[in-house]
Write a protein that binds this DNA or RNA. Structure first.
Lengths: 131, 131
DNA sequence: GTAACACATCGAGATCCTTCGATCTGACCA
DNA sequence: TGGTCAGATCGAAGGATCTCGATGTGTTAC
């Protein structure tokens, strides 16, 4: 997993070529509004993105994916992110609840791994959303 | 833009076939940790996802994209999401700051539109992250 | 049985986020 | 010049989130 490419890109927020048909006066509020994402679908989506909306959780996900065997226990994660064990445990629970990480208890250790396809699914949804 | 497909899927959080080499006893904390995403890159990524981590903002993005000409003004958005004008303005600012929406002032109206490629870029990053 | 260990859960404090009414800024019109 | 409209900005209230130390739970080792 390579999240570092995010930094190197040219995320230019260029001005858009706006549709010429847009009026500059008169009533601007068209009565019909195409509701592309209903509230329930939006809430589901937002829940997944919210889990990725914390730098610590992005790092945890990344470290787990890059770890030997694609899995890591809590004690592997506290030191790299520089947070306490309860805090790391809290973030891992959020990632599990979002369906991004899976938890497997083996003996006294809890092993976390990335759920296959979960990131792909989110990514595909974003890539296709703009069409 | 169709965000509704998110609801229909089978986002199964199946148990993973875990690597058999993982030890069930002995020291579990390997000294070397491959840091896949450095803190700065993780923070940048999290900032983008955090903008998408609110159901209202997902709906706003979706409504803007589905609107005539791919753009909409604030007065087109307050009624569909059922929130006050200052609140909608606040959410739009967050989406603009995240590079997902562009703002263009024409006369006394402010038109918002999805920044081309911004969602694709995030989506591609997620799709490739798991590799 | 008892001790040690890995991890989850439980408050609590600090901070951030969402939302609103009120107000301010510009643009347009008479 | 004054009025109206679209939208941004400004506090403030309420709730959610992040983080921690303390503690509980289950497993392993002696």
């Amino acid at each position: 997993m390579n999240f570092n490419a995010w930094q190197d890109g040219d995320m230019t927020t260029t001005a858009l070529e706006l549709a010429p048909a847009a009026p500059t006066s008169g009533p601007c509020c068209a009565p019909l509004v195409r509701e592309a994402a209903d509230p329930a679908a939006a809430a589901d989506l937002a829940r997944s993105f919210k889990a990725l909306g914390d730098p610590t959780r992005v790092r945890l996900l990344s470290i787990v994916a890059a770890h030997d065997g694609g899995e890591a226990c809590v004690c592997d994660l506290t030191e790299p992110v520089g947070l306490s064990q309860p805090t790391v445990s809290h973030h891992l629970k959020i990632l599990v609840d979002a369906g991004l990480l899976a938890r497997d208890q083996r003996g006294k250790w809890a092993y976390y791994s990335v759920v296959p396809g979960s990131l792909d699914r989110l990514g595909a949804l974003l890539s296709e959303a703009a069409r």
